[in-house]
Design a protein around this nucleic acid. Structure first.
Lengths: 204, 204
DNA sequence: CCAAGATACTGCACTGATTGAAACTTTGCA
DNA sequence: TGCAAAGTTTCAATCAGTGCAGTATCTTGG
């Protein structure tokens, strides 16, 4: 896993970033579907055809950092602290995800939220990515706790936590709340999920 | 909500069914992306344009019964038994979903599974549909338990249960297990999620 | 420093999904 | 029967995505 450093690699990185920035700017300016690939490519001074050697499709530009984030989460699970419980580990992973910062990510996070809420195609892509991530996280969890966690348990743990958090966050945003409130809702939902549902529906 | 019965309505229903059957047959025969809308339309003796007055897109044919199933689930939540706990109600809903039968649904369930596992576009659509359903189920849950369940709790309950079940099912299928085994995995995952994750990762 | 060889970029043609508009046909009903 | 609504078809246009062939640009071994 060596870090590329040649001229070629630097140029690629610059173009990639130009594509992301241009695309996100255009998307928020004129709307996602109103923006054509030709315009995005033009904004980064490459041909339309070249766009596809950087991203597999129009939607993927928006999730340019998904790979890195997943990689980080997987690394955290792989390097779990000895004696740490599954719940505690997953809590750490979620927390790290919430804090993720990055030149682009930080600056564009809010716009991306709005885009995702507004554009069905992006919602679908987001869910798909998130789901694939869950699958890989669950697998990693199995490997990290080979004696204690079987595949179904791992799926239950990851799916339940992420499922609860995601739904709570989106519903919060749909209700018109701020991204901060959404994060709070997500954490609370994750806690509820972690604690189990048995007690719900009878006033405590 | 009256049931249409005229010639017009019967004809529409017949065409719709023809489109679904033709599409599913072609999909499993030659593959999803290898099948064009023109072929699907031809298989039902309508023009390509007309296809779009029955379905919003190519992917939607595959999920022709999603609406009905959601409607049923919402009705069950709306008519919850007095005194029934959230967990018990949701368990009933899941169970009813698992038993869903229908001329087409039953016959095509397995093929649909295979398609969904194989075609990314369908996975994405499925997740999106499922997510929207979750959102509406959570809202219904809020209304059904106005005094005991706030939005975040409802999201946590639905998201956690569905998230766990879905991930477990898909991972089971990915592992090459049968649809029956996948259902079993899903139920077990849902139980684990319902019971909470606190205890995981320490040998019981 | 230079020639291969590998990579990346471009233009072009083409398939196929999706949409809008206008003309036409069928069905429901007075 | 004859009109209006609903449903279809035809036609044209847009745009995402893909395959291909040729060109331009790095990287590397010598």
């Amino acid at each position: 896993m060596k870090v590329e450093t040649g001229l070629r690699a630097r140029k690629k990185a610059r173009t990639r970033r130009a594509l992301v920035e241009g695309a996100l700017r255009l998307f928020t300016q004129k709307g996602y579907e109103q923006t054509t690939l030709a315009e995005i490519a033009a904004s980064a001074d490459v041909s339309t055809r070249t766009f596809f050697s950087y991203f597999a499709g129009k939607e993927d530009v928006v999730f340019f950092d998904a790979d890195d984030r997943l990689r980080e989460a997987l690394a955290m699970i792989g390097g779990r602290l000895p004696g740490e419980s599954v719940a505690a580990l997953l809590a750490r992973v979620v927390e790290a995800g919430a804090r993720w910062e990055d030149d682009l990510t930080g600056r564009l996070a809010t716009e991306r939220f709005h885009l995702m809420m507004a554009v069905p195609a992006l919602q679908a892509r987001a869910l798909h990515l998130l789901f694939d991530s869950q699958r890989r996280l669950a697998e990693a969890l199995c490997s990290a706790y080979p004696d204690e966690v079987d595949p179904v348990t791992a799926a239950a743990a990851v799916g339940s936590l992420v499922g609860a958090a995601k739904l709570a966050a989106v519903m919060s945003l749909t209700r018109g709340e701020t991204p901060e409130q959404a994060w709070t809702a997500a954490r609370r939902a994750a806690e509820i999920a972690a604690g189990g549902l048995q007690s719900l529906g009878r006033t405590p």
